[in-house]
Write a protein that binds this DNA or RNA. Structure first.
Lengths: 179, 179
DNA sequence: TGGCTTTACTTGCATCTGCAACAAACTCTA
DNA sequence: TAGAGTTTGTTGCAGATGCAAGTAAAGCCA
């Protein structure tokens, strides 16, 4: 099994892997540059606005937002700080649970997003979808969707495993103490 | 044509786009964390070593290396600085053209890469290829390969266009002066 | 050859980002 | 209901990275 897991990538796999890395990096870099130049928004900032705009009441908990944009909690805190300074979002404490903070899209944020949307859409079409057939599109959605889901599941499993490990340590300590 | 270019993403396209962003981000984040924890190497550092190891004489010009790992020139300079401090690569000036710098893999760098390879390979299989069929693999290679190539071509075209624009400006200035 | 343009890299500076430590608030239990 | 343990966000700090400016070396042309 270990042998299987460590089988080197064959040519097709290597091609897919390198294409993913390079294709993704180049497209994102171009999109980011265009969005920054034309709209003064970074890509993560744009994504925050998009996710908020699609959420009920145009608001999301910080932790949900961090999951959506794939940013660390601290990274998201600072990004929301910045967007709040620019007036594009604001923070609301949750009344039921004072630990929770909601990021809320402001009218200015909505307007800024609406203004940036055409730039982003054009870039995504031009740099990405114009080079893909519908079939390829379908495959990418399925394949990378599966990867994403598995990664989420693995993440949850890793957290659980960590808890078990800690429990194990504690149990071990207890046993040592008891002996 | 503009209408066509600004047609909103349909459901399938949206699915592909989000899957690409999230799938890529999550996988890379996990790979980076594992490589860092087990081997003390960042992902870009690992990629630099890989590309050098595959190059003739295990060396590449800084600019070629930057293209390969999709990093800005300054970013690559600093990354090579760091790797050189650790003794994994060294710099050689080109004798024929003193502007050019080659990054060369050292024996230590080769050894470090060999040590890190199993960790990376296992991660790539576990987090990515284990969730893909051979057919999906093939499609990803083709589709994102096309995107990557187009992006390269567009980049070259953009540089050319920029030159033209500058030429145009100069011509305009000249005309203005002459009038 | 002298000077102007271009190329290849390197730095200054500002920003972004993540990890670890921290603070605050909630939950569960005795 | 006091206290231990969790969860949720926020900072301190260090490292990474890009843009613009700077430096050095070629190339080109009169």
């Amino acid at each position: 099994m270990a042998d299987q897991a460590l089988r080197p990538l064959d040519e097709r796999e290597m091609g897919a892997w390198r294409a993913l890395i390079r294709g993704h990096n180049r497209v994102m870099r171009r999109l980011e540059a265009e969005l920054e130049a034309e709209q003064g928004l970074s890509l993560p900032a744009y994504e925050v606005l998009v996710h908020l705009s699609e959420a009920p009441d145009e608001r999301l908990r910080m932790s949900e937002l961090a999951m959506n944009v794939v940013l660390s909690p601290s990274g998201l805190t600072r990004l929301v700080d910045k967007l709040a300074r620019e007036g594009l979002v604001c923070r609301h404490r949750c009344e039921a649970d004072a630990r929770v903070v909601y990021a809320v899209l402001t009218p200015e944020g909505r307007a800024r997003l609406d203004a940036a949307y055409p730039t982003h859409l054009r870039g995504v079409r031009e740099h990405f979808f114009d080079h893909l057939s519908g079939e390829q599109c379908e495959f990418i959605a399925q394949a990378l969707g599966a990867v994403d889901n598995a990664s989420n599941a693995a993440c949850a499993a890793a957290v659980a495993a960590e808890c078990d490990a800690v429990d194990g340590e504690l149990a071990g300590d207890f046993a040592a103490d008891a002996s």
